[in-house]
Structures are given as C-alpha cells and as structure tokens.
Design a binder for these strands. Structure first.
Length: 638
RNA sequence: GCCACCGUAGCUCAGUUGGCAGAGCAGCUGAUUCGUAAUCAGCAGGUCGAGGGUUCAAGUCCCUCCGGUGGCUCCA
C-alpha cells in the first residue's frame, strides 16, 4: 500500500498523500475544493502540466489560473488551437503551422489561401460551436515515427517533429476528432474559454524568399469568462479613443498630407509643444556640459561610405543627385559630429567632448511601416555624441542614466531598459566588448530599474542600452538609446593626444534620451489622453467671461498671466457658457477660468481644472502665482 | 516592401438589385449676454482619392496607381 502512495507538497507547505496515478486536477481539488473552478493547469515539480496529468512521484504541486502569467498563456494557447480546429472545419485544405500565445492574446499561422472577412465570420461561428461543445483536450504521447506518419499530410508539422529533441516522445492533443501537434499543456476542455475574440488576420512576409509560401496569421485574445472579455473590450475602446493620430488632428497639433507620406506637419499648437520639449532638454545640456552643433542635412555619399552607413543602411537613405555627385540626406547625426572632432588636433583635456545636435533626420522607411508620429520618415532626436576615453565611459553612462530617470519622471512615464550584447558579426576585440558589456550591466544593476538582456542584438560597432516606455494600454515603444561605439572613430581616423604624448582613438557614446520628439510626443499624447502637463499645453489658461460686461476684466487678468509667461486665451461670450466650457474641455485646456459678476466684484476667478469637475475659487493674484509656479516647476498634476 | 481591408463635405458617417449626392457636428451670417460638457434660425460647403475600362447610365461593377488601417519584416 505504501509503495503505491505519493506525497504531494502544496504551496501552503501542506503535505498530503495520494494514491499513485492521481491526476494533478484531482489533487488540487482535494487541497482547495472551492478554488477548483478557476484551475486551468498545474505546476508539478516545477513543470507546467495538464490537470489530467497522472502524478507518479512525490513533489510540489501548485495551481495555475488565469491570474498567473503562465495561466494566461495556457488559456490563450488553447484558444489558438480552438481557432485552428475552427479554421480547418471552415477550410479543410488549410495546413496549420504554429499557434503560440502572445504578450496579450495569441496567434495561429496557417499555410492557406489568403483569408477574407467572410472566412473570419465563419471561423468565429465555428469557434463558438467548439467552445460550447466543451470537448476535452486529450494528451497522447507518440514515438516520432508514428507522429511523422500521423502528420504526413502537413510538411510544416513534419519539420517541427524532426526539429524536436530526438530522445523525447512527441505529444499530440486530441479535441473531438481534431488532432494537433503540441507540447502543451492545455486547459482541460474547450469550455474553459469563456470569451474569445478574433482580432483579424494578415499575411506574413516570407523572410528573404519573395517567392516562398506566405502564411496567413489569425490573431485573437481569450478570457476565462465573458466578463473578462467585455472588460478588455471596454479598455480597448478607451485606448482607441486615445489614439494620438486622432487626438493630434483634433487638437490641431500636427497633421499629414497625401503628398508627403510619413513626414509630419507640425501645426502652430504642436510646435509650441516641440519648442517646450527642446527647452527642457537644452536646460539639461547646459548643466551637463554639452555644446550644441549643427551639421549639414546633405553629405556626399563618400561620408556615408566612411561611416559605414552606405554598407549597412543604404536602403534607408534618401539620395539627391546633384551635378556629378550623389548626396544623401543624413539618417543620423553621427557622421557630422565625427567630422567636427576630426577637423583639428584634439587633446585629452577636451574629453569628454559632448556634442549635441537636433537636426532633422530623414530615413526612407518602407511604406507599410510608417505609422502616425511613432514611425515617420523625418524626425528630430535629442541626439548627442560624447567622445571619451575608456576610463570615462562609466561616468558618462552613469550621468545619462540619472538624466533618464529625471526626464521620464517629469512626464510621469515608467521606463525600462534593454541591454543588447555582442552580435555574431561584431567588429573589434571580444575582450573590449566583454569589458563594455560588464560595465553597462553593472551600471544598470545600480540604477534599480527593470531591464532585459537581449543577447546578440547589439550594433555591430558596440553594445547598447535601449530605453522603452509603455503607452496607456501597455504597448512598449523604444525611445532613447545609449550606444558604445569603438568603430566609427577608427573609420574616421579620429585621434587625440594623451598625457603620455601619444595619439589615441576616442570611444564615442551615441545617445538620445527622449528619442525623437515625434515618437516621444505620440506616446505621451496617448499616455495622457491629450491632457498634457500644463507646461506643455499649447493653451494653458482659457478665460470665459459670463457676459460682455466681464470681458474687460478677463482681458486684464489675461494680461497679468501673460506677463508671467503663460499662454492665455479669452473666449468672449458669443456662445453659451456651457458650450464654451465644453469646448475648452475638448480642447484639453488645463485651466478654465470663469469670470462673472461675483468674480469681478470680489477680485477672484473660478477655475475648473479637468478632469475634476469641481470649480475652485482663487483670488486673482493667487491664481496667477499658482499657474506660473506649476509651469515653472513643470509639475504634472495640479 | 509583403498580405488583407478601407478611401463620399474640414470631421464622423448614410447612400437599396447601377437610375437626380445626403445628415449631424465644425464653418459663415443673424438673433441670443448666458454660472460650468452642445441656445436658435438661415446660408454655404463635393471632380464621391486619381486615372482608365464596362454600360443608355457608375459613388456603386472591373483594372492600374496613390494614400490610409491592421498585421509581417524593419525600426527611434
């Protein structure tokens, strides 16, 4: 009897004996019967398993629910399989390939003719049927040969089987009559999906092989309950209302025209924001010992041949043939800074030499990739190149990380880092790379901010730290970057004379912090739903006199506010007060001041500060001081 | 660039099986002088993305191109 019993340890450290062969689901239900409805899978001895997995050994067992990251992935992965079953029912000749969970949701790729919206409607109906049928996911393990035979009609699946580790059996899952190759685990049955929404389909580029098969990807997202799906859909709708492309047009910040695709047009109000961002960054540059430079937009292509851009980036450079030469519109500022450094003899006493440049950059981005302000063909970076000795690298990076923390905190944005290390095609010495990577890693550890390591993703000339911020719905966008470069100074033959009297080659730190005004502002606009901090708002105060009798007093107050540097408008009473308040709200004016008999008599102003609907009464002097102070300190909320 | 879809007034959208291009908001004019998210009336506004084709007749059907959207690839 004792030989046929195993001991299971639960997360609360409780130990219970079970007969050998008890399933994970049974054991967990015995442990906490009230929570068994939420169970999707289990973690057994550290491994994710199906609830139907029989347990044969002593060990730890914990529940996996939708609250866990793993549980979300399992549910979405199972949903992907259901979509595959539904698609095969709709289009029997389709060949399924892979269907993983994504960060939010899932996709499944098919080798199939191009899909149509009607297909999607039919697949959705089939998904509903499959979920209602509540078919269990049965796991079966097969020898490789048998699996290869089972999937003989699908060359993609055959390839996955051949690529799998040769010593392990291959697992397949049966759902009704449908069988799919899968490592698992899965939810117990199709009915565990409470809500599933298909998010569309798209063709995938055949990598490197234009004539190769193009797969069709179906994307979706799944939840254990219909309420979960409904909540997600509400959030998504709200996110769509925050789309910076829509807000930007409505608030008259920027626009686009058909004749200049991917080239933003900054309207007067948007330009105010850009100027404020520049002012913010330039204040820091002055404190931190930078010099600002400006180098040509056009360079003869020989400059890009020297910098390496011609070899690595030619397809993205706009070319301008002139006389008998070919010029390129610069895609980055670095070549110009290299030329400045190399223009005369340099001493170690000049280092670190910090050259900032906010020049318009042009990159010929593929037409299918441009997107609002977040992916454009012309933009301006808060860019700088710092020429340093190897000993100075750590100090410069530390200063940059501190500035990043201050800058992003000012905008109430949370940021994260990604450290990209030596790629396969790296240039230079491995030992130098190792030292540089170790330095960057140590500095990131010290910064106490989350970071990921992206092995092999560094530039060919050096490792880099990229900065990411997330918009309100959790999409990550790369903004800034800090790149160590050992190669470009060599290519330009840059040297400085050291204290030893010898010539040395400097290292260059390429760095942008907010990244580009365009992308940064696009994300900020979505993050704030258009409610920019006061110091960035194109119109900071709008005064609404109740009647013509109050207009003059309002204009006097506007003058007092302008004298303190504030951007103020007076909306005279040609429309009702309610309408003017509404308009000011829609225009995202942070301070809406109402002016009537009472305010004129008492020397006050009633201020509405959205999103609060509670008006606040200020004395006029108080309000002027308050608003001027909020702007001067770049406060976010008040 | 690749796959699919979309393109009607400044914006959001209607427009039946091919048969006289519409509404709301915004704009302009006039009236209204108002206490916190839409006062009333009138007027004006269009080469239906562009070009070609089918047809007695095309916003509607077909082709090509341009632009946009969602993905893919790439990227700040």
């Amino acid at each position: 009897m004792a030989a046929e019993s195993i001991e299971i340890i639960f997360p609360d450290a409780g130990r219970r004996p079970f007969p050998k062969g008890t399933t994970a689901g049974q054991a967990l239900a015995d442990w906490k019967p009230e929570a068994s409805r939420e169970l999707l899978a289990a973690r057994y001895r550290g491994e994710l398993v199906d609830l139907s997995r029989p347990l044969h050994h002593d060990g730890s067992l914990s529940p996996v629910t939708f609250e866990d990251r793993a549980g979300k992935e399992i549910l979405n992965h199972s949903a992907a399989h259901i979509v595959a079953k539904a698609l095969i029912e709709t289009i029997p000749e389709a060949l399924p390939t892979v269907g993983p969970a994504e960060e939010a949701g899932f996709h499944y790729d098919f080798d199939v003719r191009p899909l149509t919206p009607e297909d999607l409607t039919r697949i959705t109906a089939a998904v509903d049927r499959i979920v209602r049928a509540n078919d269990p996911f049965h796991r079966v393990e097969l020898p490789r040969e048998e699996a290869l035979h089972q999937f003989r009609a699908n060359p993609h699946k055959q390839r996955y089987i051949q690529d799998a580790p040769p010593n392990e059996p291959v697992s397949i899952y049966r759902t009704g009559l449908w069988i799919d190759l899968c490592r698992g685990p899965h939810v117990p049955s199709t009915g565990a999906i409470g809500g599933l929404r298909l998010l569309g389909f798209s063709g995938l580029s055949a990598e490197g092989r234009p004539e190769g098969p193009i797969l069709q990807r179906v994307r979706g997202i799944a939840f254990p309950t219909p309420e979960g799906l409904a909540a997600w859909e509400r959030q998504r709708k709200e996110a769509e209302a925050r789309d910076h492309r829509v807000l930007g047009e409505r608030l008259e910040l920027f626009t686009f025209v058909e004749s200049a695709p991917g080239f933003p047009i900054w309207l007067p109000k948007g330009m105010i924001v850009v100027r404020e961002l520049e002012k913010f960054v330039r204040e820091h540059l002055a404190e931190a010992g930078y010099s600002e430079v400006r180098t040509p937009l056009l360079f003869d292509k020989s400059v890009f041949e020297k910098s390496g851009h011609w070899e690595h980036y030619k397809d993205n450079i706009f070319l301008v043939p002139m006389e008998n030469r070919v010029y390129g519109l610069k895609p980055m500022n670095c070549p110009g800074s290299m030329l400045i450094f190399g223009a005369r003899a340099r001493s170690y006493r000049e280092l670190p030499l910090r050259l900032a440049e906010f020049a318009p950059l042009h990159r010929l981005e593929a037409s299918g990739t441009i997107h609002g302000l977040t992916r454009v063909r012309e933009f301006v970076q808060d860019d700088a190149h710092i020429f340093v000795t190897e000993e100075q690298v750590a100090g410069e990076i530390r200063t940059l990380l501190a500035w990043i923390a201050r800058a992003f905190s000012t905008f109430h944005l949370e940021w994260s880092y990604e450290l990209s290390t030596r790629p396969a095609n790296f240039l230079g010495e491995a030992a130098v790379w190792d030292r540089a990577e170790a330095t960057l890693k140590q500095l990131l550890d010290d910064s106490k901010v989350a970071y990921r390591i992206s092995p092999g993703e560094g530039a060919f000339y050096g490792p880099k730290i990229d900065i990411f911020i997330k918009d309100s719905i959790g999409r990550a966008w790369q903004t800034g970057t800090i790149q160590l470069d050992y190669q470009m100074p060599l290519r330009f033959g840059l040297q400085y004379q050291g204290p030893d009297g010898h010539l040395h080659t400097p290292i260059v730190v390429h760095r942008a912090i907010l990244g580009t005004w365009e992308r940064f502002f696009g994300v900020l606009l979505e993050h704030t739903a258009g409610r920019l901090p006061v110091w960035l708002s194109p119109v900071q105060v709008r005064l609404l006199p109740i009647g013509d009798a109050h207009s003059e007093a309002a204009r006097t107050l506007a003058g007092e506010l302008r004298a303190r540097g504030l951007r103020v408008e007076v909306a005279d009473p040609t429309e009702s007060l309610g309408k003017r308040v509404r308009q000011a709200e829609l225009d995202r004016v942070p301070y809406i001041g109402v002016f009537g008999d009472r305010e004129v008599a008492e020397g006050t102003v009633t201020v509405r500060r959205p999103p609060s609907k509670e008006p606040k009464l200020f004395s006029r002097a108080e309000f002027v001081d308050h608003a001027a102070n909020v702007v001067a300190t770049r406060s976010f909320d008040p």
